[in-house]
Simulated assay, not measured.
Amino acid sequence: MPERSSRRRGHAAVAALAALSLTGGLTLAGCSSGSEGQKERASDAARRASPAAAPLWDRTPASVAAVGDSITRGFDACSVLADCPEVSWATGTDSGVRSLAVRLLGASKAASHSWNHAVSGARMAQLPEQMALAAQEKPELVAVMIGANDACRDSARIMTPVTDFRASFEASMRQLRATAPKAQVYVSSVPDLKRLWSTGRTNELGKQIWKLGICRSMLGDADNMGAAAVARRDAVRKRVVAYNRVLEDVCAKDARCRYDGGAVFDYRFTGKQLSRWDWFHPGRDGQARLAEIAYRNVTAAGPPA
């Protein structure tokens, strides 16, 4: 009996040492020449034993701040030439739109845990100031849609240079990170202004509103199909494409930033989804479509391909 007990204790000790060796809990002297297979098994066991790194992107943020321009303010969605933030795709409370905040937080919580710091007419140069205001709210998610006004100028010649656009967006991200280093950022692409012109120009009332000065670089002289007018519109579209490239590039350098992959730029708004007053800004239905796109991308397992 004592001899068998001694053998059992010996076997148990050997088994324990082997287990510790395989899980990386013990390194035995003189074992550096062990087989590659043993090393691989030990490495695999160690990886299984260590907790997985927490993902940087949280698909269920508990608060939302919005920054941007007239689209995010719901301009011309409820009445002519006026903001209507309650239908904003990002933080609005309208039950028909079901904004990103409502979809993420629920209607009651969205009212107290979302903030809209967008300003109609804002260009990228104004975004750092908006970001500073948003950061003070300590939001878990900041929704960004800006850039249309950088291309929508009185003349295509005075569109914001791409280098300036980049510098201002980089400054905006630094501004946010200085106060809210862990806030997630969802960046929408700039809409395709030329496609909006093509859709809206079928409405005579809309074209009359355009003459008041909305996006002259694209919408001015709306029915002119001469070479100069076509070239002007193409130049504006090309600049928007360049802006979207900047948004994607700068966002990719921040581990907590997600670009929409060009989803808003690619979206084909119909007349039903545009403002019934200016046939250029999104109406309620268009705001709802923007909310759908944002929610889909924010809650996706990974960023758009």
Rank of each mutant, 00 (worst) to 15 (best):
P85N: 01
G92S: 12
D266R: 15
L196Q: 02
A183K: 00
A54H: 07
G30K: 11
H281M: 12
A255G: 14
A82S: 15
A77E: 02
Y243N: 04
T270C: 02
R284M: 13
N297R: 09
L28D: 03
S70K: 00
A242C: 11
I158R: 11
M159L: 09
C84H: 03
V190G: 00
S120H: 01
S95N: 11
G96K: 10
A231V: 07
V80R: 09
A62E: 15
D44K: 10
M1T: 13
L196A: 04
G271L: 11
T72W: 01
L176N: 01
D221Y: 04
V230Y: 01
D58H: 05
I146D: 01
S70D: 02
S5Q: 12
F269D: 09
R153E: 13
T91C: 14
E204W: 08
D285H: 03
A134D: 08
E204A: 15
E36C: 04
P51Y: 03
R4Q: 08
R7Q: 10
G74E: 00
D249H: 07
W279V: 02
S70W: 03
A66C: 13
D58N: 14
P191L: 12
R276L: 06
T93C: 07
A118V: 03
G302W: 12
I214E: 03
A171D: 08
N244I: 03
S32I: 03
C215L: 00
G68Y: 13
G147V: 06
P85D: 02
T179V: 11
R233L: 10
S189F: 07
I71K: 04
A18G: 13
A66G: 13
V102E: 11
S70Q: 06
M218V: 04
V142P: 04
T179F: 05
D192F: 02
A291E: 04
A110R: 11
I209P: 00
A305E: 10
K253Q: 15
D192I: 03
D94K: 02
W57I: 13
I146M: 12
D249I: 01
G283A: 05
S120F: 00
D154R: 05
S21Y: 13
R48E: 07
Q208K: 09
S79W: 14
A151H: 05
C78V: 10
W279E: 06
R103H: 12
A77T: 03
R245C: 11
A12W: 04
R47G: 07
V87D: 01
K194W: 09
D221P: 03
R296A: 11
V250A: 08
D278M: 07
A183V: 02
L20K: 12
L104N: 04
A291M: 05
P303Y: 08
T23E: 05
A231D: 14
M159D: 02
S114A: 15
R195I: 00
D150H: 10
S95P: 12
A227K: 12
Y295C: 05
A255Y: 08
V240L: 05
V67G: 08
V119C: 01
